[in-house]
Nucleic acid binder design. Structure first.
Lengths: 190, 190, 190, 190
DNA sequence: GATGAATGAGCCTTCATTCAT
DNA sequence: AATGAATGAAGGCTCATTCAT
């Protein structure tokens, strides 16, 4: 296979998604990827590096997920699209994909290095806010404030749905989304 | 020592906070607590039970922290007090204390049993929202929505400050707090 | 209690009889004997010595069992009484007593030292054979041959009954007993 | 090495024979077999399975030993051949081999599963007795009685020789063998 | 490149033994 | 004499990593 490296990463994600990171052993990974255990070490220095690469790899697919169909429309429309994507990120993935919760279980996910990559990966979000501010729609706050106030609720709601504490209710979520949008715009400060 | 049990829990918290739960070994824990490995088993049946008790122990200290000085005043005053406590929860912690993020990575944190304890422990929050709803101040939404919209931003901001991406700025945080409060009240829907 | 030593030995036998020697821990022993773990060491140097003493102690009670009601009658009557006691030794004991099988699980049961004690303890058996030989009833063979031919079958049958491969059948056992007696006497060599 | 499995079993037997099963640790076993501790687990799931396989392995080699050169001749000749093999089983063993006594101490030796295997393995013995019964040579007793009366003495004598309480004396043993044979035949009941 | 048998450090846990009280 | 908390060596087992083939 031309892309044995990719295959290993997908097997790793699958195992973590289905059994948890504590059950990811190099042997199980090799079995799932249908290669010998030693072969993994031709592609990854060690387990730490493998997980580190998986982290970045998934971060990018998460970003791709979040920005799905979110390049069109005005700022508000794009915001709301992304907002719902964040919710789905928590509850919608296939059994072979890591969900948000599990992603945060990956070692090293909160290191300075990873955060820099994360910031770069989610640059489009920053741009969206910047655009909103320039259009005098969005409050002129630091991006961290805007993200915390507007998107953290979406992530949190997704997780609660995934954990079963909440059902996915389009109408109620729409309302929550509206609230979050209004919270960071001038519309409610007139 | 009467509180060797407590000492073990604090060492466990410290190791998890500094190195991650994957590096919590009974030997390392014993070394840190300056006791013999076998001694841990006089106080805890096994590693699972130790972590389980740590979970509840931290949950309670988090609750105590969040509700500090938050029993007086009207609904809005109490809300804002708690909101700031959530921020401080994230950024005031010593390197020896688990942060919110790490706490969620503890095994068993999402079991039915734990959730029941968590719900009971944070009952005052529920009561606050209920009171606000009865006074026609707060939007009549499920508690999960209210919490996600109003408090997750506070937690998130605390973490960002802790991680150094943001400075603690009383004025800006006050503004964010106002936004969160308005977001879940009728005041912005007049 | 005046005889705490005896109490400890009885608790040890009980635990071994009910749970097997691999489950005899000093703590469990102390709990059963209702004393502190450290107290055992006032009576026994260490666990090895405790078991060693238990071995001899039980050997003597086994001997007492084997010779029960076997002091009266002629040589044949005494032989047959003892023969049946050997069978019962294998299958008849209370749940708090070690059976033959379990006894042989005690470490050190086959050491030279123990065998000397065993020989001394079972001296009456030797005397019985000697008496039989002097009366020209029993074949003039070394005691080891006589014991092996006449009593090992009884021990073995007792074990088979205990293990459930055989039922206790008085009539059949009587026949086997007769066979063993005849085997070592001149009666079948006329 | 093709038979590393065999090598592990032989080391296990040796350690049990020389030190007792309570001293068989996986580390000691690995050291004796000159392999790493972890390697054992490539061949055996765990210690239980290792001992279980050792049990069957030894059972079969014991059977092979007992039936050596014992397929020819009439019933009496075959019986006596086997009888002497049982004696030699006890006294010919090297210090690296388990004796009968030790074999019976192996955990699981009395499970239903093991007994089925044992019975199957020693089927030729059963057949021998059956043949003798059909020829009206051997008493019509259950096989357990016949075995206990006729062969247990041989095993016991072998052990006594091994332990040094008796010397191997062909003439005396021949006499004992005759006694055992007569004991279970009609010859002494005419 | 690929294999997978072998390694051995490290994990969690038990328990005989000690010793301050 | 008696206690029982504390010890720490040793046990069974796992698994990331190496290396001869």
């Amino acid at each position: 296979m031309a892309n044995k490296r990719e295959q290993i990463l997908r097997s790793a994600e699958k195992i973590i998604a289905q059994e948890g990171i504590q059950h990811l052993s190099m042997q199980k990974l090799a079995d799932d990827a249908k290669i010998a255990a030693g072969t993994i070490y031709r592609y990854f220095k060690d387990k730490d590096q493998l997980i580190s690469e998986l982290r970045v790899n998934i971060l990018q697919s998460v970003a791709a997920f979040v920005f799905t169909d979110a390049r069109a429309g005005n700022v508000e429309q794009r915001f709301k699209h992304i907002w719902f994507n964040f919710v789905r990120l928590g509850c919608d993935r296939t059994p072979q994909q890591l969900n948000y919760q599990q992603f945060y279980l990956l070692p090293g996910v909160n290191t300075a290095e990873h955060n820099a990559i994360a910031r770069e990966t989610f640059k489009p979000l920053e741009d969206l806010f910047t655009e909103g501010i320039q259009q005098h729609l969005v409050l002129n706050l630091q991006i961290e404030y805007l993200f915390s106030i507007a998107f953290e609720p979406a992530i949190s709601l997704g997780r609660r749905i995934f954990e079963g504490h909440l059902h996915f209710n389009q109408q109620e979520l729409q309302k929550a989304c509206d609230i979050c949008w209004h919270a960071i715009t001038y519309s409610n400060h007139l």
